[in-house]
Amino acid sequence: MSGQGGADQGYRIVSILISGLLVYGGLGWLLDRWLGTSWFMPIGLVLGVALGVYLVVVKFGRSQ
């Protein structure tokens, strides 16, 4: 697909993983602040990492 030695794909994958953490971790943090709880953020972080990994597999896993 590309002849860049994979560096550009690597950047895209890293940005997907990070945005998974940020989006769902951030959502959990907001919920925690709003409801005064403290367990939404850890759940959000785990969910975000899992979804990020899943998304990487879906987008890049089978194009090789």
Binding site: I16, G20, V23, Y24, G48, L51, G52, Y54, L55
Partner: peptide, 8 residues
Amino acid sequence: IIPLEFIS
């Protein structure tokens, strides 16, 4: 997935 992809 949709919010995640949108942000990303």
